[in-house]
Design a protein around this nucleic acid. Structure first.
Lengths: 177, 177
DNA sequence: CCTTAATTTCACTGTTTACAGAAATTACTG
DNA sequence: CAGTAATTTCTGTAAACAGTGAAATTAAGG
């Protein structure tokens, strides 16, 4: 499998952006490759196309599987695993957000809950307590809201997003004018 | 400045989460410290409180300033810079999102635009072209929407988020039922 | 200007992370 | 239950990054 200039650019850039998102470069590249590919690929094909070590591909795929971003597909008469990803951007986005929420937001909420419940908390100044409470509240509201969004199907989500602008304008006018 | 157990926990956790977000640990810790502090702090106070090198604080503050998350405050009769951050979670969130958008989304949009405009693009298969176009579209819509949100003041944003759930339910019912 | 405090730059060190390649394990097939 | 293909685990190395402390720079006050 040789990459065309366009797909190569796409894959490379996706890899770079991945690193900025705290995602391993190879992991992001594999995902990009599968996203553009019109069929499921074997680990060996990925290895050859990206020019990385076989073991690297193996580990990266394992991570993508854990994020549910990649699925295994079997092909009749071939015992190798073939890997594919959803071609639906919205679907991908939902999976990425869900994954990040689990790894980044939930631990924070837990710590905040613990702090709020701890006996030391009462000893803090009013301002400090209020700030920590507000932080917890904020993350909580945001999380609930994102859960709602994540439950939507692509078309509905699209409508909500497009409505968002209009509604926020309405509210703003109502509040200020 | 000695930290209480609660603030210490908060600062340490914020630092850890920072690293997962691709933010330097010290940078995140300083931000957390200023967030909980009830007054602006000097670089030396931060140094002492966090137990890190003075230069590290200097560099980290520079980064926070570039994100506009921290501002310099001057105090009469003191020539040192004092640093403070907004105590408004919503305000902070907007700044963080704006910063990340600039560093992560905009370069991606640019690359996608370049790919779409390149002469090689026409040579790609229909499916590939469609996927890249959809990706660009998606990021574009999401960006516009988030720009709208970022323009809102805290209370309005809160209302929009709370409305979000209701509206998405309405649309879902309308679409499916 | 000169002194001294504040701040930044820079070179170095320790730590973490990514990756390759070898070795080991798993699992299909006859 | 071989024999072989596929996959994973393990180990070492290279690269990236965070953080320190000394040296250099900047700037305020006399």
């Amino acid at each position: 499998m040789e990459l065309t200039p366009v797909t190569e650019q796409f894959v490379l850039h996706w890899g770079e952006m991945g690193t900025r998102w705290g995602v391993n470069r190879t992991v992001a590249q594999i995902h990009a490759l599968l996203y553009l590919s019109d069929r499921a690929l074997t680990a060996d094909e990925i290895t050859e196309t990206l020019g990385v070590a076989r073991s690297n591909v193996s580990n990266s795929i394992k991570e993508l599987l854990s994020w549910r971003l990649v699925k295994v597909a079997h092909i009749m008469g071939d015992r190798r695993d073939h890997f594919e990803t959803s071609k639906d951007v919205w679907e991908l986005f939902k999976l990425i957000v869900a994954g990040r929420k689990q790894k980044e937001i939930e631990p924070t909420l837990q710590i905040l809950d613990e702090l709020l419940a701890s006996s030391d908390f009462k000893k803090e100044s009013h301002e400090t307590r209020q700030r920590i409470e507000e932080t917890q509240q904020f993350i909580h509201v945001l999380t609930q809201w994102s859960d709602e969004m994540l439950r939507l199907d692509p078309e509905t989500l699209m409508k909500v997003l497009k409505l968002g602008a209009k509604i926020s304008n309405l509210i703003r006018r109502e509040t200020k004018g």
